[in-house]
């Protein structure tokens, strides 16, 4: 029998967000990234245009990260105390397309660093690499609100991606990003209604909602990832079906989630039937990232150089055209 290809027609597309600004655009980046713009479900190229590839980022901290697995020492051990050099290594040696700077040092439970120190850390990263930058606060609302304005100001012109804005705490960050023309990450706790609501509330502050990247909150494989995965699928399907408030690219903090798990960290002597620790951790990142890419993830923030290399290759393959 002659078989008829089933093609869906969608009414809407995902908004396209550019991060980073070159000299001509008023910044100092040597490259920018553009994500989003999809007119079809993930990688169904035959059905609609998928203009931009998802991008990979590596995560760096403004302090030597306490408690990262020892397997990272061989890659980052010599640069843990110099965030600029750390970022440079991530880009030049390991091929990160973006750097995700987490200002964990500002956390009152860590080094309680000041806004000035945060600004200095961002400057170092900006000076040492040319790729676009994601900047995340420390995760404590009060402290983040103290540092966001300063950080946004010191990155003025660079078109950063700043995060995170949450339902209970989005105003300071939105104002900062608005004032200095940065893009913003809107994070919701695996709840599609809150995700939508938050995008709308950010828009009500006159922030251009086409400059939002959503973080629907993910977990690692084996730790509740299926909830975030399904929220992403629902958000993407709803967006293509016409829901403009959901039509945003998505980001996931994969390294952060994966390297909390026992499976990524436990030595092989504790669990011989799970295989060697380092490749296990890398594979945990890879499977987490790849499954989320299949649900529509646009920015994968990873930790291990090998995970980054593999995920980039998978993206290359997924971006090849398919047709009938």
């Amino acid at each position: 029998m002659a078989f008829n290809i089933v093609k869906e027609k969608y009414r809407n597309k995902i908004s396209q967000v550019t991060i980073g600004a070159t000299k001509e655009e008023g910044g100092t980046r040597t490259s920018t990234v553009t994500i989003g713009g999809e007119e079809a479900l993930p990688y169904l190229h035959f059905e609609g245009n998928i203009p931009n590839r998802p991008v990979t980022a590596l995560e760096v901290w403004d302090i030597a990260p306490p408690g990262w697995n020892e397997c990272f020492n061989q890659y980052y051990g010599d640069v843990y105390n110099d965030v600029g050099e750390w970022a440079r290594k991530c880009v030049e040696e390991y091929g990160a397309e973006m750097i995700c700077l987490r200002l964990k040092g500002a956390d009152p439970d860590e080094d309680n660093r000041s806004a000035d120190e945060c600004e200095a850390a961002l400057k170092k990263v900006l000076d040492s690499v040319g790729v676009p930058i994601i900047v995340l606060g420390c995760g404590k609302f009060e402290k983040d609100n103290e540092i966001f304005m300063k950080v946004a100001e010191s990155g003025a012109g660079e078109n950063l991606l700043m995060g995170v804005a949450e339902q209970e705490n989005y105003k300071t960050l939105t104002a900062a990003a608005l004032g200095y023309k940065h893009a913003i990450i809107a994070q919701s706790p695996i709840d599609i209604n809150i995700a939508k609501q938050l995008n709308i509330m950010i828009g009500e502050m006159n922030f251009d909602t086409d400059r939002i990247v959503m973080d629907p909150t993910i977990a690692a494989v084996g730790y509740g990832i299926e909830y975030g995965y399904s929220i992403m699928q629902r958000a993407r399907f709803g967006a293509l079906g016409g829901d403009k408030a959901m039509a945003k690219p998505m980001i996931g903090n994969i390294g952060w989630e994966v390297w909390k798990t026992k499976e990524a960290n436990a030595p092989v002597s504790d669990f011989p039937e799970w295989g060697e620790q380092e490749p296990r951790g890398i594979n945990w990142e890879i499977v987490t990232a790849t499954s989320l890419l299949c649900a529509g993830l646009n920015i994968a923030v990873l930790r291990h150089p090998s995970s980054l290399a593999v995920v980039k290759k998978t993206i290359d393959d997924l971006m090849k055209p398919n047709s009938y």
Binding site: V221, G222, G275, R280, I282, N283, W284, V287, T288, S291
Partner: peptide, 9 residues
């Protein structure tokens, strides 16, 4: 090390 995360997914 590859199959444990895959079966978990």
């Amino acid at each position: 090390a590859a199959l444990v995360p895959l079966v978990s997914w």
